[in-house]
């Protein structure tokens, strides 16, 4: 089954997780999005999106023990599944196709 097309937020979260590699978890993903995508995401939106991505099989997580700064609560570190990578590629392809031939219109004056 071809992966369902990704929403913009989903793409951003997956990309952030890929960029962070082994250090991808709730707090770091939120920071990454804020720093590089300029998106201040509400925590509600972040965690429900992560759960949705997990349900679609695009992301998975494992638990790690948390330190005193987390009051001993565990940490979920996320990694993008091969399906997730494929979905990102598909999205990129679609965007590329749509951009083709529009360079004159959308070119940013430098």
């Amino acid at each position: 089954m071809p992966p369902a097309p990704l929403g913009e937020l989903e793409q951003l979260i997956l990309l952030a997780a890929l960029r962070l590699g082994a250090e991808a978890y709730g707090v770091s993903i939120a920071r990454e999005l804020e720093a590089h995508a300029g998106r201040r995401l509400s925590r509600g939106a972040l965690y429900t999106s992560l759960e949705r991505l997990e349900l679609k099989g695009l992301i998975r997580w494992k638990l790690e023990a948390g330190g005193p700064e987390r009051r001993g609560l565990p940490r979920r570190t996320y990694s993008v599944t091969p399906r997730g990578v494929a979905a990102l590629r598909a999205s990129q392809r679609i965007l590329r196709r749509m951009w083709r031939g529009l360079d004159d219109v959308l070119k940013e004056s430098s």
Partner: peptide, 27 residues
């Protein structure tokens, strides 16, 4: 557990309780 852990970690870093409560609300 994991979400609360994240929130506590941020609270620990920033000390901003209002932010914490706001995050809880949004979740």
């Amino acid at each position: 557990d994991a979400i609360l852990g994240d929130l506590f970690e941020e609270l620990h870093a920033s000390g901003n309780r209002a932010r914490f409560v706001l995050n809880v609300c949004s979740i």
